[in-house]
Design a binder for these strands. Structure first.
Length: 490
RNA sequence: GGUCCUGUCGUCUAGCCUGGUCUAGGACAUCGCCCUUUCACGGCGGAAACACGGGUUCAAAUCCCGUCGGGACUACCA
């Protein structure tokens, strides 16, 4: 894959700290990040906290830690400790009000924006009546022709007002890198509110000012922003700011094909972390939701993703989030890890203190090795391996193999016991296999191995009996076999 | 309702721009077989889609039009 020239683009992710880092935001961040890395250029983080009411510190922290966990590092932007990274001021909108104020004032002065004194409830009724007639809910423009002098007087009298941008009565076309030309009729939009007042800009305005001041070249964001784009372009033109390229990503959908929401699935990046998904797997999976490389490859490490990422290969329609495929992919990545790495990760997500019987690290490493192939997420580990720590209660029928009678099963178990008793304290897979070989030869594999395995695990399914014996050791093996005999006798 | 976006297996998708090589390829899930004491892993195989209707063309999943379906947006939120 050919590399594009370096330093040509600057992209950003602009989450608002009004909720935990959403998977959709994570994917948008990933696409921006991949685009930046592919072009060997900058990826910027900007915290959009203009809505003071709804923005919270804990959400901001969650954004930082989620991005860090995924490995989405940024070149410029705010730091978790309140500092900033990169040449510009901290990229929190709440810390840039003077910048917005300047631009607001210049628009007001130029007459491309004006104060609007209309009352909110009046506007609401107007809107409702318009909608009832099947018309677009457009502002009437009543305050548009107010003179600046009059506005100043009314403001001085303490009247409350918002700031609107004059939107021209014409069509606007922009080129979307994913969808091609998109056309809007601006008269259906009307004069939009761009700020509550000089100190409190609104989203569409702040975005435009920030993207320009941060020299953003490409705005890559969710499809839900398509309708905002013409508004932003109008503001941008009014301010005389340079154009940017737009690319609107298809949305991640729930199985009912609506925008992914917590009603249906886990949407917080942090919850996937807690569930025991690997960031590599999440990244690979998210990249494939709406994007696809050339060819049939699906398991792609980050460097390949970066090398092959291309906006031209992004899907137009939304993608349903398929948790089963994520599980499969996570399993694939899990299996590439060493036993030790897996064990370490398991310990970071689960509370070890409540384990009844402690096993040595060597034993735990063996368990990881045995369970690796059936592990899809780290969080499954404890239920999959509980029997190693404590024999679960089970029904004696579990011990019976196919047509075998209770009596036969008990006999086999007893023979097994006597041969295990002759073994060394240290059991390993091959010594166990060797010791039991004569019994297997006499009775048959299923006839010996099933009751043995069932007695040792108390589970319908588990790793093989020799492997379990190796982990359990002679004493505990004998214990469990003894218990099985009692169970089947009573 | 209005505006905009969108429509290939159940799901993610390749192919579409540059019509023929597509009796439409891959992956997850599913079914069957093999491996196997069980489950998983792995291997092999099966079932499974071009929304519909018109055009254009010798030829359409691919180009054009329409219909229908799905979604997003519709705040003094972002």
């Amino acid at each position: 894959m050919a590399r594009k020239e370096k330093g040509k683009v600057r992209v950003r992710i602009a989450p608002s700290p009004t909720g935990y880092l959403h998977l959709g935001t994570g994917r948008t961040a990933l696409f921006n990040w991949l685009y930046a890395k592919h072009h060997e250029s900058e990826f910027i983080l900007r915290i959009e906290d203009t809505d003071r009411e709804r923005s919270e510190k804990k959400y901001e922290d969650d954004i930082f830690s989620g991005l860090a966990w995924l490995g989405l590092d940024y070149d410029e932007g705010p730091l978790p400790d309140g500092g900033d990274k990169g040449p510009h001021a901290p990229y929190r909108q709440s810390q840039r009000t003077s910048l917005y104020r300047q631009h607001l004032e210049s628009m007001l002065l130029a007459g491309s924006a004006y104060y609007c004194f209309c009352k909110k409830d009046e506007l609401d009724t107007e809107r409702q009546s318009l909608e009832a007639q099947g018309l677009a809910p457009v502002y009437s423009g009543r305050c548009r022709s107010l003179s600046q002098a009059e506005a100043v007087t009314r403001l001085a009298n303490g009247e409350s007002a918002v700031i609107r941008c004059k939107v021209p009565n014409q069509k606007l076309v922009f080129e979307d890198l994913i969808r091609g030309k998109i056309e809007f009729d601006l008269k259906l939009i009307g004069d939009i509110v761009i700020a509550k007042n000089l100190e409190n800009p609104l989203y569409n305005f702040a975005v435009v000012v920030d993207d320009a001041s941060m020299l953003i070249t490409h705005v890559i964001r969710g499809e839900d922003h398509i309708a905002n784009t013409p508004k932003q372009i109008v503001i941008q033109q009014a301010l005389g700011l340079p154009k940017v390229h737009y690319a609107h990503l298809p949305l991640i959908l729930d199985p009912d094909r609506s925008k992914m929401s917590k009603r249906y699935s886990a949407v917080a990046v942090s919850s996937y972390r807690k569930e025991g998904y690997l960031p590599e797997a999440i990244m690979n999976f998210m990249a494939l939701l709406g994007w696809h490389p050339e060819g049939d490859k699906e398991l792609m490490p980050l460097n390949e993703l970066i090398a092959e990422f291309d906006l031209g290969r992004i899907q137009k329609a939304g993608a349903v989030f398929n948790a089963e495929k994520l599980d499969w992919m996570n399993g694939q990545y899990l299996r590439k890890l060493s036993d030790r790495e897996i064990l370490q990760k398991i310990k970071t997500i689960s509370d070890q203190s409540e384990k009844k019987n402690k096993l040595t690290e060597a034993q735990e490493l063996k368990i990881v090795n045995l369970l690796k192939s059936r592990l899809k997420k780290l969080s499954e580990f404890s239920e999959l391996t509980g029997f190693f720590y404590e024999l679960p209660s089970y029904n004696s029928e579990l011990l019976l193999w196919k047509e075998m009678s209770s009596k036969e099963t008990r006999d086999v178990l007893r023979i097994i016991i006597s041969s295990v008793e002759k073994m060394d304290q240290e059991i390993n897979k091959s010594s166990a296999e060797q010791a039991l070989a004569p019994i297997v030869a006499q009775w048959g594999r299923g006839e010996v191995l099933w009751p043995l395995r069932a007695a040792l695990s108390g589970e319908k399914s588990s790793p093989g009996p020799y492997e379990i014996m190796e982990v359990l050791g002679k004493t505990e093996t004998l214990n469990r076999l003894q218990k099985a005999v009692e169970k089947i006798t009573s």
